[in-house]
Amino acid sequence: MITLDAITKSYGKFRALDGVSIAFPQGGTTALLGPNGAGKTTALKIMLGLARPDTGTVCWDGHRVNGAHAFRNGIGYMPQIGRFPENLTVAEFLTMIEGLRAAPAARLDAMLERFELSSQSSKRLKDLSGGTRQRVCAVMALMFDVPVYILDEPTSGLDPMMSRRLKDAVRAEKEAGKTVVFTSHIMSDIEELADHVVFLLEGRAVFDGPIEALAGGAGVERAIAALLEARAT
């Protein structure tokens, strides 16, 4: 289980996270949602060690990981924006990422097939469209058979077919008992994939619980609108 405990993070005067504590259930799919600037990406980056919290701790199976790096062998990460060394080919880039891990990318070929990148693996990254780069991001995260996947707005920039394939892949990981944490603004994705929701607003977790408890029968979008209205009044 991954836990964020009393995390505070400021960028200058802007407080991105304000004492946030979240326990991401093992084997569950957690969606981090909230408006722009709510602290979703910051929370993901702190989980990964890409940003340092001002206060608070990040624990991985009960062990504090602030500043460590080996724990990332257990994480597949899909960033929000796929910008890579332009002059490398898709295959060279993914081979490099594989070479940085303790275990080989067991599913590299399968993921290249799934995201229709096999025929493009010899193309340079600078020659790919934004959507295709996003597919490379997806392969980079999902080619490893690891216990945790962290996906930052995974379906943004993907066409409907690739978005479907990505969601199928995430669902397969979920069924295999893997932990998935993702951010999204697309409510249908959240309803489809998440079983646990953390709603962040102005750097605070204003809701943390099962999706049924948030949405009830009304749907996530309505539930969030009601939540925002309640906060405003």
Partner: peptide, 13 residues
């Protein structure tokens, strides 16, 4: 290379 560094820093290195 900022985004590339981010991808690398998210790996176990």
């Amino acid at each position: 290379a900022r985004e590339f560094y981010e991808v690398l820093a998210a790996q176990p290195v």
